[in-house]
Nucleic acid binder design. Structure first.
Lengths: 112, 112
DNA sequence: ACTTAATACCTAAATTTGTTAGGTATAAGC
DNA sequence: GCTTATACCTAACAAATTTAGGTATTAAGT
C-alpha cells in the first residue's frame, strides 16, 4: 500500500459512514474494517485516524465512551445528533465529488 | 463551489487524463474544461493548477511550448514519454482508490 | 523466560497539497 | 473609460496526511 494520497479529505466522510452503519466503533476497529472491506486496497493509518477522530469530537460530531476489555482500554466512538446530520451531508458531498472525478476519468475528453 | 477538499491528490491524475485525451492544452483551458465537463460542480483554481503543472514539468512528465495567440502568450502542455506511462499508472491508481471509497460509502457496513 | 505479533491508544515534526488573496497584462464589449 | 474574459503567475497560510516514532497489555511461539 504505497500511498493513500488519493483519498485526502475523504477520511472524515469515511469515519462518519462507518459510524452511521455501526452505531459505535473504536479506532483500531475502524482501521481493520477498512482494510478488510477493501481487501487491503485502502489502509487508514492510525496516525491519520486518531487526530481526525479527536477533531470530530471537538466539533461535537462524535461522542466517546471508554470501556475495559481484556485489561485494555477501548475508546468507542458514536455519532451525536449533530454528527448524524453531518454524516449525511459529508457523504453526499463526497459522492458528488467522486462523480465529478469520474466524469473526467472515464470518458474520452476531446475538449473543444 | 464551496470547496474542493474532497479531490485533494487527484489533481495530478486529472491533469494527466486531460492531456492523455487532448495531446496538448494550456492551463486556463484546463480550468474551463473541468468546469464545463462537470457542469460547474468541480472548479480547479489556477492557484492550485499552475504549481501542479510546474511540478509535473520539473518531474519530466510534461513538456511546454509557448505560442502567441491574439497578442497573448499561451503555454501549451503535453505529455512526455515518461508522462504517458505515469498517466496510465496514476489514473489506474485513482480509479482503484475511488472504487475502495465507494465500497465504504455505498454499502451497509455492519462490521464484525 | 524471551521474543514476536496483535491489540489499542497516542503524538510530534515534516511534507504535501490546496486555499486565500493577491499581482500583471492584453483584448473585447459596452 | 470601465468591466469582463483571457492568460499567466506567486506568496503566505492552513489543512490534511505521512513518517517515525512512543506506550502498554495480551497471546502465541520457541
Amino acid at each position: 500500500m504505497e500511498s493513500n494520497q488519493f483519498i485526502k479529505g475523504s477520511l472524515t466522510a469515511i469515519i462518519l459512514k462507518l459510524l452511521e452503519d455501526n452505531s459505535r466503533m473504536y479506532g483500531y476497529e475502524m482501521t481493520k474494517a477498512v482494510r478488510e472491506l477493501t481487501k487491503e486496497k485502502m489502509n487508514i493509518t492510525e496516525a491519520a485516524l486518531y487526530p481526525a477522530l479527536h477533531k470530530l469530537v471537538d466539533e461535537g460530531l462524535l461522542d466517546t465512551i471508554n470501556e475495559m476489555v481484556d485489561g485494555r482500554v477501548r475508546k468507542y466512538y458514536s455519532l451525536t445528533k449533530k454528527g448524524k446530520k453531518e454524516a449525511t451531508t459529508k457523504i453526499d458531498a463526497l459522492n458528488e465529488a467522486i462523480a465529478s472525478v469520474q466524469i473526467i476519468l472515464n470518458s474520452k475528453l476531446a475538449y473543444e
